[in-house]
Nucleic acid binder design. Structure first.
Lengths: 331, 331
DNA sequence: CTTCAATATGTTGACGTAAACATACCGACC
DNA sequence: GGTCGGTATGTTTACGTCAACATATTGAAG
């Protein structure tokens, strides 16, 4: 910086002003400084800047397995939103579903100088209430709404409800549910809302069938459901399970949606190209990322009047895998 | 740090020594300092440390869509390996397949104070030879081997070869190939090696069928291939396409592996649970992550004698989707 | 008892930046 | 023409740490 100042014939403070885009710099001076920067290949030193400002310009993201589609999408969205706000993203993966593992990742990120942390919780930990070291802004995504931190998630309840209502509206007497694993927050909420929507509508509540998000588990559940003639509509908690389910139904000679309507959740890229194209619930991860970053910035910048909870509305996408029940179907 | 020093009754320099785990500190003094740190909740300031040492303790990762399975896995593996080396990972996503977009992400990461950058290239850019600003260690993963940077990738050629050899060894006269998109480096290498293995074995080379990695594209290709009785073995360039392919064959009444053997590439989580379980090529992403970090550290620490190219050997996993051709099948 | 080496600890200064304050200049107004 | 307010720029200082050097202490060897 000193070299730039010398070359441009100004003080280092003026260089600093130009680097930070302050307004009160003469345009001619600014030009001189910029060209000097160019000549010398000057890059501001973020460490020195952070030392003075106390800000690092970085957000931390803690997430479970990024091999999982939702987690990866969420991470990508947070990274995009962070860049918009001129923050970089420090990523740290966690393997074990334990509070200890999360806390360890947290400690590591604190040491790595981030201004705030997004915890993509997605799965339940071994302890019911997460307690992290204070003095660090935190936002939880996809996780438990029980603890003290601001929270961002899709409105799973609304998504489920729209699917179940859609199927009931088509004339189905009730809707079966192929749920995700019990340790997933999203799976729980989807199942709860499915149940409530049925009871609110006065429809009978069939037993829940559990899968593990995989197509394989959907297939196995489907082999069972295919033998029950009373099953005319199934809501799978994600698209992969819906895929497996449809395949099992097909193999058992039950047509979709002729004999059985099937709906999923997530709207993965392939959903529109399945046979038949899958009715599902679309989720806008970009919005989730934006909200996470916004809530974090609220805390970092000391704003306490903002919302502490954001629910992103998913949208029902009706395709061809759902239809009215066949007339004269078992009631 | 000054407070810790006061509380422990030592100088700040001694605190620094304890924080950095230097040897020449009396164990009693060390204890005092550590307990003072505990009491005051002291955390070293990485910005100040970076300012003095010139090191940031962070690696940058630039990647295309993390929604893609391979990219997400690679990112996760790099993050894990980086943590082992006490580096954090600064992630930046790139949407457009242009050199300009990559260069932009690169600039941003340079400003964000990283010690080196891994570029997960995976897809071809608009310009043939990538040129990045110098004075920053770079490692390219999954990408073009043509440019100057050290490179890490799976040995796609070997993986392809083992699949094709396996199928030829079972007695198939030749092997068809369902390739990935032309702008993918991995897809190109897999296709090239498939072709070479066939010609080396004196087998005829059928026309290449192109997909786009999706199950849908595999399905569509399968609808076509199913009508050709001369097709007895197909090597799909990834597992998703193999899935779609198998489904199309099944619908067309051609059994797998009875009528047609199918092999994939990637060994995704579902591969072992398909019907039939898929013969495919397993890739160890963890090793790729480790190599990326190791090559980067070589550069950061000024070692120039290390290897400049690392190929991770994928492993053929034979399951039930491949078998000898039906006796008396068309030759 | 002196000398020396080894070990433990303290003191000083520098890293690159931006905030706070100080100064210089300009034009407008009474 | 003097005072005032605004704008452009310069000067000083502190941020938290660690390297380099300086000093104190200890024990062993001569």
């Amino acid at each position: 910086m000193a070299d730039v100042a010398t070359l441009a014939g100004v003080s280092s403070q003026t260089v600093s002003r130009v680097a930070n885009n302050r307004q009160n710099v003469d345009s001619a001076t600014r030009e001189k400084v910029l060209s000097a920067m160019q000549t010398l290949g000057y890059r501001p030193n973020t460490a020195a800047r952070a030392l003075v400002t106390g800000r690092f310009g970085a957000l931390g993201v803690i997430s479970f397995d990024v091999g999982a589609h939702g987690n990866a999408r969420t991470l990508g969205a947070i990274a995009d939103a962070a860049r918009e706000a001129d923050f970089s993203v420090n990523f740290m993966g966690v393997r074990a579903q334990t509070e200890a593992a999360v806390r360890h990742a947290f400690q590591h990120l604190m040491l790595q100088s981030v201004d705030g942390i997004v915890l993509v919780e997605s799965q339940m930990l071994d302890t019911p209430s997460l307690r992290l070291p204070p003095s660090m802004p935190v936002v939880v995504a996809d996780g438990d709404t029980g603890h003290e931190y601001p929270h961002v998630d899709f409105d799973q309840a609304h998504g489920s409800q729209s699917v179940v209502s859609h199927l009931l509206g088509l004339g189905h007497r009730t809707v079966w549910h192929l749920a995700g694993p019990a340790d997933s927050f999203a799976a729980r909420r989807r199942a709860e809302s499915w149940r409530r929507t049925l009871t609110d509508a006065g429809a009978p509540v069939p037993p829940v069938v559990y899968g593990d998000w995989s197509a394989r588990s959907g297939y196995r559940a489907g082999l069972d459901l295919a033998h029950r003639p009373e099953v005319t509509a199934v809501f799978a908690a994600n698209d992969q399970m819906a895929m497996g389910l449809m395949r099992a139904l097909h193999e058992a000679g039950r047509s979709v949606p002729g004999d059985v309507s099937v709906a999923g959740f997530d709207d993965i890229a392939e959903a529109a190209y399945l046979v038949p194209p899958l009715t599902t619930v679309h989720q806008d991860f970009e919005v989730v990322g934006k909200h996470c970053v916004a809530l974090l910035l609220d805390q970092i910048e000391g704003r306490t009047d903002g919302p502490r909870r954001r629910a992103v509305e998913p949208v029902l996408v009706v395709r061809s895998s759902t239809a009215p029940p066949r007339p004269g179907a078992p009631a």
